Simulated scan of single mutants.
Amino acid sequence: MESSAHSSGPTTADETKIRIACVQMQPALGNVEANVAHSIGLINRAVELGAKLIVLPELCNSGYMFRSREEAFAASEPIPTGPTVKAWSEIAARHRLHLVAGICERDGAKLFNSAVLIGPAGTIGTFRKVHLWNEENLYFEPGDLGFPVFHTAVGRIGMAICYDGWFPETYRLAALQGADIVCVPTNWVPIPGQAEGREAMANILAMAAAHSNSIYIACADRVGTERGQPFEGQSLIVGHTGWPIAGPASRDKEEILVADVALGEARRARNWNAFNQVLRDRRSDLYDEMLGSDIKRGWY
């Protein structure tokens, strides 16, 4: 298992850098107990590398390629009372961590492809995938929580899942609410027309979004092939300038990427020069300032 670290730019005396880790792993379809145990081992490895904010892949407790809603339902659990979140909360408390991880969430009779944000004191918040991909539409409900940004001890954290990253609104609405970083549990698949050896399209989209919003983006992908579907790997951490500061990881190996960042630098750096600030320069006289969303605007 490989790791990489990067120190990103100078910081002010009152701003401490934290180490972010993206864990690239391979879950086993339907084997929740084994997947959670495997994730705990990888979290412990990231802790040994000094990580304080850790991101795990999409649906990393359940696997992805369900054949039926019944199969997805059997691998689901509620947040925060299910055994997966309890296990992740215990390790977050033990190591004083913040953790973002993809989970198959059950809420009554509804299923959601979700990500949970956990801190040292327990569950902080949940994101439910807004834009469902392909047959996810057969099993999951579209996310109904919008794009929340959570104020934590380490910074302002937004979340997105996989296909959400194809929509610029995802990152823009997070930035407008003051996000320093968007953490992205994901299960990227090959895109038609992708030339041999080219980086994942998702890498390019994440770099563009980080640059155009001046935010950090941390993407944790899975690897392996599940019921004939290969996954892309290539997890990465992108700095607020849009350039990768860790990764991309390999296409086929479990890895942990790490990067040292001062998250508040993302907001400070939005003033690009004496004239331009990437969010302030939006022409809200010509288009809706919040893209039609009714969420409360934050600071930028």
Rank of each mutant, 00 (worst) to 15 (best):
G298H: 12
S89M: 06
W243G: 08
L286V: 11
I191C: 10
R268V: 10
V154W: 05
P27Y: 08
P10D: 12
A174F: 04
C60I: 15
R96D: 15
A249V: 05
R128P: 00
I157E: 03
R106F: 02
L173K: 10
V23D: 02
G108W: 12
E33L: 09
D164G: 02
E48I: 00
L279H: 14
V238W: 07
R251W: 05
L56I: 03
I40F: 00
L59F: 07
M207C: 15
P80H: 09
I43P: 00
V32M: 11
L173W: 04
Q234A: 04
E105C: 04
L29N: 03
H211R: 15
A115C: 03
A109T: 10
G292W: 12
I215S: 00
E70V: 04
E105S: 04
I79S: 01
E255P: 05
F73I: 04
R283G: 00
R282G: 08
S39T: 12
W272E: 14
H151V: 13
S3Q: 10
N35A: 05
I161N: 05
F73V: 04
K253I: 02
A28M: 13
A218C: 14
V278W: 01
S114I: 03
W188M: 10
D294Y: 11
Q26H: 11
L42H: 11
Q24M: 13
R297G: 07
H131C: 09
L99G: 00
V36A: 02
V238E: 03
A51K: 03
Q24T: 11
I256E: 05
V85R: 06
H211V: 02
P190K: 12
N271T: 12
G119E: 01
L99Y: 06
V223Y: 14
P244Y: 08
M25W: 08
G143A: 07
E58Q: 15
G125D: 07
M25K: 08
